[in-house]
Nucleic acid binder design. Structure first.
Length: 876
DNA sequence: CTTGGGCAGGTTC
DNA sequence: TGAACCTGC
């Protein structure tokens, strides 16, 4: 099965917040930046072409105002706008050279990358960002009062269906003051299971818009380029929204506005329906607008098209798109091509060789550059060409393995491919004339493989540190395991080097300086048997013990008190907590446990923000410790017209610190680097940040080496937090197994909108369900009294916990005990080393006071901070 | 030369 | 897997 594009699960359809960032008339901006004297003048970029002033490929907004459009010739543009500046795309080797714009696009992407690892570059000037994690984190921060929305973050923001962003904000706050005002409509319009996500949709999109504002401000500040953005729950909608208000604007597409909006939205506006397929759909269905598609059943659409397209259309018509944002920073292939129309047809061997040489030369340059920057080599080359055969254009493409980058090799292979695949290559009786004229010629290289190694000099590796870090933590981490989830890459000298540098770079960042030999030891032996997650985990834990304990100090977030939003969210949170409890009651899997853990942690955090829960009287209090009036949002009165137009260009300092702090790599890495499977349940990532909400400015904290979160410097919390990660990983593994099984079971079954969670409700009692593979009991049938279930699967009793475990799972089960014991040891060590440190600092009264405060606030072991282990022993 | 050219990604068989 | 075709910027 060719790997389909990854999709998220249907039940997560409203859980993401996706951003599409689209550079405004990018090529023009690049030219304007390069030649500042052209700024604020009408300008267009033309591809060099002597005929009629060249073809326009980009037009800035000043020129658009004069009626200049793409597809015009330069001369026509000048007729409309005599003062227009026409910039030519540079020409190298008689071809347009777009490398300037590629480099500029990369510069922008580098800025975007800082905001999330889940960045997918869609083209040279467009990228999707999945900012779900950041939004969720902010929600948490809003609940605790550590973060509040500010009006100036919504500058240049639009919401579909609302004349003014202020109206949208008003609507949200009105809903806060009367939560049931819209709920009836929600209940009628949406599936019962979707209601929690639907109720949170608007506030999460609004926060997404704030993030988008920060992203765009950062791009502007650091590159000088302006862009537009769309904020929605999926890629298709984000893309659609981004195009609605340009330039230098951003647009939210609220969930509730979709039906009305789609009723008059031409089908072709949707990405994927702008071409032939869209036309066919409109004709066969007899429709013009996307909303009209809703009349048809999924089965009907599947019958008219195919299963996949039918389902896709059915979903899109309802604003649902499950395609995941697939992390990709670098292009998968590098190629160049050229047309040889009419008289320019290549008819002779000499000229064919000449052009192959030119193309090879460019490819070679770009591949060399790519190698230096990205440390990878293409392993395959493809030649594409169009021949004129009997007056018909015949397109062909042939590929071959690629070993050397030099231009001669490239040209030689390309020629050989064409020759060997053309029936009559040379005209009869000729040694220089081609039998078939060539109208188009292209060479591209792809199938990249990372080389980390010997040929590459050390200096180069460090010079390109940034690129490597990105690849190590991004693409590789996500994409490689997909191909081979079970097996480790074989340990060549190269990969040892690679992991050394990867570790070095990461280590350097965290200032955990370790001797190289440590890393060497941590590399699994060459022919290790099937490695489980726990082996890795153990190694990580070992590494942590060996590392020195450099504890970075948190930068203090601005002190902001709960705004309307904070209160609104507090309410939502309580609702959600109740929901979760309802769910976990009849759910025996680890997901349920993780949610219970969340609930417990949420309870702990309540200790800190209980005072923000008040009657839902819409009053806004200014926080005294922050002098400026503007700090708190005034939702009921805010109007975009009151928002200062200039504030987007220059953000207040403290704003910046909020913008960047939650987005550091450390914080966002764990959730992305572990995302290994096609089905991504975003609920999984919620718990990632479900750490106790703390005033980190008041409490001493340590950084979690797993997720980078600041957690209280307290052994109880450390234990809970680490158990949490542990359970999550476990949950992930279990889920992936389930998924595989499920997929194998029902290959042909049509996807049902009802979430699987409900479907597999555990009804029976005790032991029979214990042996189900989708139960955590697979690993922990905690009661020693358990009978071996009546099953023909071979089982064994664990000597450690007396549970009956499938024999095949026993190694991993034992791993669990080993890892858990290790954890305990670690925490003991942490405790010892820290109390030693405390001893040393005893002279400082401030420190011990803080420690005391911490203990008071968090409470003792009896205060509900149960560890996961305790869960297992009690609730199974 | 020409209803844009060059490029990249995806799907289908 | 490779080749041909489609989509979209």
């Amino acid at each position: 099965m060719a790997t389909a594009r990854s999709q998220i699960s249907m039940q997560s359809k409203y859980d993401r917040v996706v951003l599409l960032v689209d550079m405004d008339c990018f090529f023009c901006q690049v030219e304007e930046k390069q030649n500042p004297e052209h700024r604020n003048k009408p300008l267009a970029v033309v591809q060099y072409n002597p005929w009629r002033g060249g073809g326009i490929i980009a037009v800035n907004y000043a020129a658009r105002a004069k009626g200049v459009t793409r597809h015009m010739r330069g001369d026509e543009a000048r007729d409309l706008c005599p003062e227009i500046v026409l910039c030519q795309v540079p020409n190298i080797r008689e071809k347009a050279d777009t490398s300037k714009y590629r480099d500029a696009g990369k510069e922008v992407a580098n800025v975007l990358q800082r905001f999330t690892q889940l960045l997918e570059r869609a083209s040279v000037d467009e990228a999707y960002l999945d900012i779900t994690d950041t939004v969720n984190l902010r929600i948490k921060q809003m609940e605790s009062g550590a973060f509040a929305l500010k009006p100036q973050e919504l500058v240049n923001t639009y919401a579909v269906g609302y004349p003014d962003i202020g109206d949208y904000v008003n609507k949200i706050t009105n809903r806060f003051s009367n939560p049931y005002i819209e709920d009836e409509r929600f209940q009628l319009s949406y599936d019962q299971n979707d209601l929690p996500a639907v109720r949170q949709s608007d506030i999460r999109l609004l926060i997404g818009a704030a993030v988008a504002g920060e992203v765009r401000a950062a791009v502007k500040k650091e590159t000088g380029y302006e862009c537009s953005a769309g904020i929605a729950h999926n890629k298709i909608l984000a893309k659609l929204a981004a195009g609605l208000n340009k330039p230098n604007k951003q647009t939210i597409l609220p969930l509730g506005e979709i039906p009305a909006f789609f009723d008059s939205l031409p089908v072709g506006k949707i990405k994927g329906l702008g071409g032939k397929f869209g036309e066919v759909v409109c004709e066969t269905m007899g429709i013009k607008f996307l909303g009209q598609l809703c009349k048809f059943s999924e089965a009907e659409l599947q019958r008219k098209y195919d299963e996949k397209n039918g389902t896709w259309l059915f979903n899109i018509a309802r604003g649902i798109d499950l395609e995941a944002v697939t992390p990709r920073f670098y292009s998968k292939s590098i190629g160049c091509c050229k047309k040889f129309p009419g008289r320019n047809n290549i008819t002779g061997l000499k000229s064919l060789q000449h052009w192959l040489g030119e193309l090879s030369s460019e490819i070679n340059e770009r591949l060399e550059k790519d190698f230096i920057e990205n440390n990878r080599k293409a392993k395959q080359m493809v030649v594409q060409y169009i021949q004129d055969i009997d007056g018909h254009e015949v397109a062909s493409s042939r590929s071959t393995a690629l070993k050397d980058y030099d231009k001669e090799s490239l040209a030689k292979f390309a020629l050989e491919l064409i020759r060997s695949n053309t029936k009559t290559f040379l005209r009869a009786g000729c040694d220089a004339a081609l039998n078939n004229a060539i109208k188009f010629l292209g060479i591209s290289a792809g199938k990249f493989e990372t080389v980390s190694n010997a040929q590459n000099k050390l200096q180069e590796m460090f010079a390109n540190q940034a690129a490597k870090k990105r690849r190590v933590s991004g693409d590789e981490a996500v994409q490689q395991p997909k191909a081979q989830p079970e097996t480790k890459p074989k340990q060549t000298e190269e990969s040892k080097m690679k992991s050394f540098f990867a570790n070095y770079l990461q280590g350097a960042k965290k200032e955990e300086k370790k001797p190289a030999s440590d890393d060497a030891e941590n590399i699994p032996p060459e022919d290790a048997p099937k490695k489980s997650f726990f082996d890795e985990y153990k190694q990580k834990l070992k590494a942590v013990t060996q590392a020195e304990s450099g504890t970075p100090v948190t930068s203090t977030p601005p002190e902001l008190k709960g705004s309307f939003f904070a209160k609104y969210l507090q309410q939502q949170k309580e609702e959600k907590t109740q929901d979760n409890e309802a769910i976990t009651e009849d759910s025996s899997d680890l997901q349920g446990l993780a949610e219970e853990l969340d609930a417990i942690e949420a309870n702990n955090s309540k200790d800190f923000d209980e005072d923000t829960i008040e009657e839902s009287v819409p009053t806004v209090e200014a926080e005294m410790s922050v002098p400026e009036k503007e700090v708190l949002v005034e939702p009921t009165t805010v109007k975009a017209s009151e928002i200062s137009e200039t504030s987007t260009l220059d953000f207040p300092k403290e704003n910046q610190s909020i913008a960047e702090q939650p987005l550091t790599e450390e914080e966002l890495k764990p959730s992305t680097s572990k995302r290994k499977f096609d089905q991504v349940d975003y609920k999984e990532t919620y718990a990632e940040f479900a750490i106790p909400e703390l005033r980190s400015d008041l409490l001493p904290t340590v950084k979690c080496d797993q997720c980078g979160a600041q957690i209280p410097d307290d052994v109880q919390y450390l234990q809970t937090h680490r158990d949490h990660h542990f359970a999550q990983e476990l949950s992930r593994q279990l889920k992936s197994e389930q998924r595989e099984e499920r997929q194998q079971c029902r290959q042909k079954e049509a996807p049902k909108p009802t979430p699987p969670k409900k479907q597999k409700k555990v009804a029976g009692s005790g032991n029979t369900t214990v042996s189900q593979t989708n139960s955590i009991a697979k690993f922990f049938s905690a009661k020693p009294t358990n009978e071996p279930p009546p099953s023909d699967v071979p089982m064994e009793q664990c000597s450690e916990c007396k549970a009956f475990i499938k024999s095949v799972d026993m190694p991993e089960h034992l791993d669990y005990h080993v890892a858990r014991n290790l954890q305990r040891e670690l925490n003991q060590q942490d405790l010892r080393s820290r109390s030693a440190a405390l001893e040393k600092e005893k002279s400082s009264p401030g420190q011990s006071k803080k420690q005391k405060q911490l203990n008071n606030t968090i409470g003792g072991p009896s205060r509900g901070n149960k560890t996961i282990a305790q869960f297992f022993s009690q609730t199974n």
